[in-house]
């Protein structure tokens, strides 16, 4: 076609612009963390890692990570258990209430998160439950469990149930079928679901704002310190926190590789 080359350039430029726009703010955080002055004066007169030294020496850094990790681990466990069972009901079995179940399940996803957090805060206060990291786990789970259920279901849709029948036919017990056929088919979905759950919980701000009480997870601390009491410590901890979540994902991927090698 005429002008095909020009059109391709327009496309390349468009995609590059989108990517640049998405990553400039993230890069900005990194740049901001390399200052040693209390007020941002970019370009920095002195580029330094002082903020990281400060963050490493500050016990707050550890506390924030521990709280975020605590919440994320519980959310992952809840999501994997409920999500796997839910995915079986969503995609594997045909049952009477399935269509309704499928439609109701997506409602929490299509719900404004801060409003969900506020609703949970109000009802817990009404029931006399003090908000803490535990209530944050519940809030996260309400939003994340349905997502994980869908992620696992995607894998299950491609699954041929006749494989289980074949295993039965070949003399496997119910338990053996689950272990040898069903679980291996589900495993990739469960793994991606767990990754999703961890990352979504670790980075979540809108649900944590109203439900975590006195326990402050990482994103909430960053949010409040951005508005007041800014120092280069804020971007430094933001970078560290993002880095830690990357490390956790890497560790999980490594773990999967080790497990699958052990299985073979």
């Amino acid at each position: 076609m005429i002008g095909g080359r020009a059109r391709n350039w327009v496309k390349v430029i468009w995609v590059c612009t989108i990517l640049t726009a998405l990553y400039l703010p993230i890069l900005s955080v990194l740049l901001a963390s390399l200052a040693n002055t209390r007020y941002m004066r970019f370009p920095h007169k002195v580029w330094s890692l002082d903020a990281y030294r400060g963050a490493a020496a500050d016990y707050t850094t550890v506390t924030l990570h521990v709280i975020s990790l605590q919440i994320a681990v519980w959310v992952v466990l809840l999501s994997v258990v409920l999500g796997t069972l839910g995915a079986m009901a969503y995609a594997r079995y045909d049952w009477r209430g399935r269509t309704l179940f499928q439609k109701m399940l997506v409602l929490p996803i299509f719900f404004p998160q801060p409003v969900l957090g506020l609703a949970l805060l109000l009802s817990m206060s009404a029931l006399g439950i003090a908000p803490s990291w535990k209530t944050a786990v519940v809030a996260h789970a309400v939003w994340i469990v349905p997502i994980v259920t869908l992620v696992i279901s995607i894998r299950l849709f491609g699954y041929d149930v006749a494989q289980e029948e074949a295993a039965f036919d070949l003399g496997a017990s119910r338990w053996q079928v689950a272990r040898e056929v069903t679980f291996p088919a589900l495993w990739p979905g469960i793994f991606s679901g767990a990754l999703f759950a961890f990352l979504l919980s670790w980075s979540n701000l809108p649900l944590s704002i109203y439900t975590s009480g006195a326990d402050t997870p990482l994103p909430l601390w960053l949010f409040s310190r951005t508005a007041t009491n800014y120092s280069p410590l804020v971007p430094a901890i933001a970078v560290i926190g993002t880095f830690v979540s990357g490390l956790v994902v890497l560790a999980l991927l490594l773990l999967r590789r080790v497990l699958s090698r052990a299985a073979n």
Binding site: P219, T226, V234
Partner: peptide
């Protein structure tokens, strides 16, 4: 990446 990090950026 947390939206607080990106909005801060």
């Amino acid at each position: 990446i947390s939206e607080s990090v990106r909005l801060f950026g």
